[in-house]
Amino acid sequence: MAVISRGFFGRKREENPELPPGQYLTEDFPVLSAGPTPVVDLADWTFSIQTESGEVHAWNWEQLNALPQEDIHTDIHCVTRWSKLGTTWSGVSLDTLFAGVDTTNAYVMVHSYGGYTTNMPLADLMDGKAWIATSFEGEPLDPEHGGPARLLVPHLYFWKSAKWVHGLRMVATDDPGFWEQNGYHIYGDPWLEQRYW
């Protein structure tokens, strides 16, 4: 039973079917990070996928950029309640990166430069749902927004789109990553409002 807030009228009323429950639109691009923005030198940058057998598939910056690049038009939804509609990114599909990867594990732990981790089912990274993004609105991705490269999984709350992504590790169980250990939901579907747990 909601308490009516005397004298509160709110700003806008138009129903926006593109906006998940409890979200508001923003035109700017807020930053949610747990610590300082890490400095990642492109000469040293790598992205890798490690499987349960210990096999490591790795790409340096040139190798990543030599892979087929896709343009992504998508809405993004932050757990702190802002949403940004119609953003444009480019990057490499996880389908491309997983093409030669042999794994039977169903879950992924994502590791970032700076120590940040986040978890998700492998299925959420497959079939055109996730990318390693290196540009935003036609420009190289700003460091505070995760540059040089971030994971982009826009159908989940945006903390799952790990900034400064460094690698994925295939794991057997859906163990919580960094934000998930600190109160955020294990899965994070914005349409089900899975913010906290």
Binding site: D28, V31, S33, G35, P36, T37, V39, G114
Partner: peptide, 30 residues
């Protein structure tokens, strides 16, 4: 956000704090 970015970068540069010991909370866009 701009304030926290500036301060955290300075703090990392001072080499007094290990990066993971600097906890940040930002508000607003840029």
């Amino acid at each position: 956000t701009g304030f926290v970015e500036t301060v955290a970068d300075i703090m990392v540069g001072l080499r007094i704090f290990a990066p993971l010991t600097i906890k940040t909370e930002r508000f607003g866009g840029k």
